[in-house]
Design a protein around this nucleic acid. Structure first.
Lengths: 251, 251
DNA sequence: AAGTGGTCTAGACCACCGA
DNA sequence: CGGTGGTCTAGACCACTTG
């Protein structure tokens, strides 16, 4: 129908599907619908709220996309279990991040060559040991002071011209992002102790720990296949000079 | 129309709106549509692909929700600029996380009291120093071995019964999640060195670093106001026994 | 005025699930 | 079999932007 209706806890001028969403969320918030409980079906919402089925469908579909509901064709719609809290840690290009702080970024290229992958690196790429990969090691500085060691392996097919690039001017992250669309990313963060060379390069005090961020990125295969590991990178920061942060609204 | 069509790089059996999405994404991937470029309007897609406008709308709307397009009513649809890469670090309840690994969780309550906030804590809550808050310190163990120190401050209004809970049976995270819906979360991860008491509690080797995760969570105000800081928690892990990881598809 | 996205409807067909 | 979600259509009205 057209008007004369109000559904949930959303402003009157709001679109109908949003009011339907608010209506369902309000019942969940009130404890009326607990996790696992069955939510009114599309047809029931049509009858209950006087909206069309497409509108009810959009409301429920979006709530499912937001993680609030689970739906199964032929069965029904249910309140999703309380979800673990996740965080978006936004990991910017180091050069852009420094620029945003008003600092000056520079980089030393410590190593840049094609090398056979050892067993550990090869495993990260799902390739066999000995496969030739590009390997770069960079030292990034903020206002001249060492901030990050970037130790990266790259699948040659993902960036054929990798060895010819000037990494004092463009970061590998930037180049790879521009070259191939990233399909998936994996991150692992850990605390550790630096080896002697790392401590020396980063000009760290004795005993100071490092923060290590390991990142794997996947790209689409050339023909749009499942996707391949394009790059494996370790970012190492002095523990006293770097923190990783993120703020977000729960999904 | 009904059938005899195929649009982009998606399987023939796939829903039409997904084929429309694939069609647009393929043009972006091919460099045909670069960031900022205008994407065919809904009407144009209707004419070009023979789908209904609702189907074209759903395809473009979902691509916008996925961050690939920007849309402006009255203007048009455009390819979104390349986005900085973000990561979802999913941070589970420690008890559930241990259970998922097949371990046994236990906890010691080291401290549980109402205390005036010092200047630093109060600042985190946007309150004035000296405000009375609940303060708990817990030591979480996996199969008896210390894994995490949880040092938490809680706004009394967010969990009035906090001091009466049995934290050997339910974790503060779990209780707070069940009590009040979280509106926003902030995380900071850093590496550091433990003080003597921390090293002792976590049974750490000399010189071993810690991984510290600091979390602030916001809840809605009682009347649905802007939101208040409900809790401020530090989670401290032995660097040698914990890593924080996440895998996701770029938005 | 023409084009854009934003929304909504009433109906339709389908695959799937459970009794 | 009836109920469920999943999809698709052909129209419609609206607010907005642009020329």
């Amino acid at each position: 129908m057209a008007d004369g209706e109000q559904a949930g806890g959303t402003a009157d001028g709001a679109p109908l599907y949003q009011r339907v969403k608010a209506h369902v969320l309000a019942r969940i918030a009130a404890g009326d619908l607990k996790p696992g409980a069955r939510v009114p079906s599309e047809h029931e919402l049509v009858a209950e709220l006087g909206v069309s089925r497409m509108t009810a469908n959009r409301a429920l579909r979006e709530l499912m996309a937001e993680g609030r509901l689970t739906r199964t064709a032929g069965v029904g719609t249910f309140v999703a279990p309380a979800r673990p809290v996740g965080t978006v840690l936004e990991i910017k290009n180091i050069a852009e991040e420094i620029a945003e702080r008003g600092g000056r970024h520079s980089a030393d290229v410590l190593h840049l060559a094609e090398e056979p992958a050892d067993a550990g690196i090869a495993a990260g790429f799902d390739l066999s040991a000995g496969t030739a990969l590009f390997h770069s090691i960079l030292l990034h500085r903020e206002d001249g002071r060492p901030l990050q060691i970037e130790d990266r392996w790259v699948l040659p097919a993902a960036a054929p011209d990798y060895l010819t690039l000037d990494f004092t001017r463009i970061t590998p992250s930037r180049h790879l992002l521009d070259t191939a669309p990233v399909v998936e990313v994996e991150h692992v963060v850990e605390a550790g102790l630096p080896d002697a060379r790392t401590a020396d390069l980063l000009e760290m005090a004795a005993g100071e720990p490092i923060l290590r961020l390991s990142r794997r990125t996947w790209i689409d295969g050339p023909a749009g296949r499942g996707g391949r590991v394009a790059s494996l990178a370790d970012f190492i920061y002095p523990g006293s000079r770097y923190r990783l942060g993120g703020r977000f609204r729960p999904v």
